[in-house]
């Protein structure tokens, strides 16, 4: 798998989702390179359990950096089918590659039409450029 940021859809809370047509409704989720850079010096991460059901916008995990705990929100609704649990002990992988090695969970979408409500790459780039 090689995920390019241009292929992804994004939330305003900086999570990305990869849902190609040939993935049988399974979406891969992570956080953007911008979010990783903003978070700076990640020390802890908690990810969901396989089988957990999530609604779009619901918290699926947490990260801690500089003593600040921030939630991560699921871009889509569905059931968690796989978790990149090794990432929790190798947070430096997120800095190096937040898309391929830095994926966090795979989720069987219950409503794939939710993808269309998310930002594409250009819209996301515009949003983060306005952060100053």
């Amino acid at each position: 798998m090689s995920i390019q940021p241009e292929q992804l859809k994004y939330c305003d809370s900086h999570e990305w989702v990869y849902a190609p047509a040939d993935a049988n409704g399974v979406a891969t989720v992570g956080i953007s390179a911008f979010a990783v850079a903003e978070l700076n010096d990640l020390v802890f991460m908690a990810l969901p359990s396989v089988g957990q059901k999530l609604a779009a916008g619901q918290e699926f995990g947490e990260v801690e950096s500089v003593k600040a705990v921030s939630p991560m929100y699921s871009p889509v609704s569905g059931e968690v089918t796989e978790v990149n649990s090794g990432l929790v002990d190798r947070l430096d992988q997120l800095n190096a590659d937040p898309y391929d090695q830095g994926w966090m969970m795979k989720i069987k979408m219950s409503d794939p039409s939710e993808i269309a409500k998310l930002m594409d790459y250009q819209a996301y780039q515009k949003m983060i450029s306005q952060h100053g």
């Binding site: 809370s13 003593k67 600040a68 705990v69 921030s70 939630p71 929100y73």
Partner: peptide
């Protein structure tokens, strides 16, 4: 003095 945070929506 030390401080810490939590952020939500």
């Amino acid at each position: 003095l030390g401080s810490a945070q939590r952020r939500t929506r």
